[in-house]
Structures are given as C-alpha cells and as structure tokens.
Amino acid sequence: MAVIAMTREMGTRGGDVAAGVAERLGLTVIHHELVEHDIAERAGLSESDVHRLLEGEASLWERWKLDRTSVSRCTAQEIIELAARGNILIRGWGATHLLKDIPHVICVRITAPMVFREQVVMNRLGFVDAMRARREIERSDAAHNGTMQQLFGIDHWSEAENYALVLNTARVPVAACVAHIAELAEEEAFCETELSRSALIDQLILARARQAMDQRFGSKSLQNGFEVNVCNGKVLLSGGSTDEKMIVDAIRLLQGVKGVTGVESKVAYVAFVPHAATQDQSISRAAPQGQGPT
C-alpha cells in the first residue's frame, strides 16, 4: 500500500503533482480540513485555533496560550494514523519529517525558483503585480518554516537528504513529475514489508503512548521524569520519579494503549528522606514492573 509524503510550498504546482499522482496510483489525498478537524478533536481545541497555528497566522497571544507540545503530539499522531491506513498522499503538516525513517514511505519535495512561483501565483490569484505575488509566497514560506520549527524543532527541512526525490517544476513538467513518483512507488525499495510495517506501527504506538501520557499527566510528563520507547509493539518506560503511585498509574495506562503488546518499566523510584533537618538523603530502588498484553 503506497504512502507518499509531500511538501506543501505555494506556487510550485505541488497540488497539481499530488492530484496527478493520486489519480494514477489510486491514492487518497489528505486535505487540510480533515487534518485540522482531527487534530482539534485530539487536542481539545477549536478548528480555527489549530488552523491559525498550523498556518502561521496565530498572534503572539494565541501562540502563548496554546499548548504547542500538545498540538505537536496530536499532529504527529494524526499524520502517522493516516499513514498507517495506506494508499494515501499527505501534503504538508510535517509528514515528510515524521515519516522519513519509515522505509516504504516516499518523501517528496516539490520545489521551484521564485520567479516561476511568482508567475504561478499571479495566474491563480489574478495578481498583476509580481511583487504582490512574492510577498504572498514569502509570507506562506515564513509561516510554514515557523510552524515546522515550533512544532517539530525542524530548521533544515528543505535539505535534499531528507527526501527520496526532489523535483523542480520549473524544469520538470507536472506530467513528468507524476511519472517519476509513480515509477518510484513501483520500486521494490518502497514496497511495504513486514519489517517496514512494523516500524510504522511502532511509531504509531509511540505517538499514541505520548498522547495518552499527556492527557493523564500533562504535556510536560515526558520531559520531567518519564521517557517512552517502543520496539515491536512493546513499550519501555524509563526515567525516574519521586511519585510511586504515578509510576504504577503510568504502567497501567500504557498497557491500555491500542496496539501495545507489553510494558516494561525501568523507572527508578527515588524517595527523599530528611536528614539532620538541613540535608536530604535520597534513596532509590527499582520501580514496579509492568508486563503482559492488553
């Protein structure tokens, strides 16, 4: 089942390429309305808030009041959930970053020089002034760059090494771009295998686990004491905490996450005992273990 992640840059004709690839390969193109709706539901926010943040339109006050860690995790989970369905093409939303390590996912960047992009925007929006088109493109690029940095810490998303294929639509016609991507999708290197599917499902379980931890303990729980990793469906919970009940609750919570086959805890429980009224002495011991399928 083909999965293609593609960049979303204004004026590159990437939308035309995506539509052509989807028609040729029988893929579903994910439109921003669906992504924003589902992210808003997961994060408990309004769709307008999510739209403004992801499109770089949020004011300083709106960015301050929104929990960007939560939005980042919800966005990651939504994109990986979509990828796990297969036969899908996702444009934007950090998909090329989130899925670049999954062997069967084809990450594509559609690009073009500014002069070409200006002409495309002028034709589509009816502008007669190239500078007006350039300002619109620069605004869009700045918003996209800001969103990628804020949500995923990505500063160099445009580098060619992040992609399986980079196509310049000023030199390569849309039809040829579609043909190149379709040809790549048929290569054995990008066929879904049991191993590549397992890697994707582990990423999905990790996203679900992080979201569950955020909802139960707050969005800082994975920065303040806990760390979650997943391998072949099994969750490893590590770190340290002074709250033994929270450790037990976390293990039970993770055992109930969809797709988890078992939980192993290596969280160290640290108890602080007053010593000489002015000095604390720490005592640590192994935390309870959690095992077994859900």
Rank of each mutant, 00 (worst) to 15 (best):
Y163N: 05
G86N: 09
V235Y: 04
S265N: 05
I79A: 09
R135V: 02
I283D: 03
A19W: 03
I201T: 07
E55R: 05
L165C: 14
P293D: 06
E118P: 05
I205H: 02
A175T: 15
L165M: 11
Q203V: 02
W157H: 00
L60Y: 13
W157N: 00
I79W: 02
V172H: 10
S140P: 00
Y269L: 13
A142P: 01
T193A: 05
R85T: 10
A250R: 03
V21R: 03
D202S: 07
T242A: 08
Q77Y: 12
W93S: 05
Q77A: 13
L184I: 15
C231P: 00
A84N: 11
A286G: 11
D16L: 11
S46F: 06
S219P: 13
S70H: 12
Q289R: 06
A207I: 00
A160R: 04
A84D: 13
A287F: 09
A287R: 09
A43D: 12
P103I: 04
Q223V: 06
M114C: 08
H32P: 07
K245G: 13
N229F: 05
R139I: 04
V248P: 01
A112G: 13
L82I: 14
D141Q: 07
A130F: 06
G126C: 11
F217N: 07
V71R: 11
T28R: 13
D16E: 15
A83Q: 11
D280R: 14
H180E: 15
V248C: 03
R139S: 06
H104Y: 04
R134V: 06
E264Q: 10
S72H: 08
D280A: 07
N229E: 14
H51F: 10
D141V: 03
T294I: 02
D38R: 14
T96L: 01
R85Y: 07
Q279T: 12
V35T: 11
P288V: 06
R42F: 10
E36A: 06
A277E: 14
Q291P: 00
P103L: 06
L222Y: 05
E47P: 09
R24S: 15
C74K: 09
R171P: 00
R109D: 08
I137K: 01
A19F: 08
D202H: 06
G15C: 01
G20N: 13
V267D: 04
T28L: 01
A189C: 12
T294C: 08
Q150T: 08
L151R: 00
L236W: 02
V260A: 02
V228Q: 08
F217E: 11
Q150N: 08
E161K: 00
V17A: 05
A95M: 06
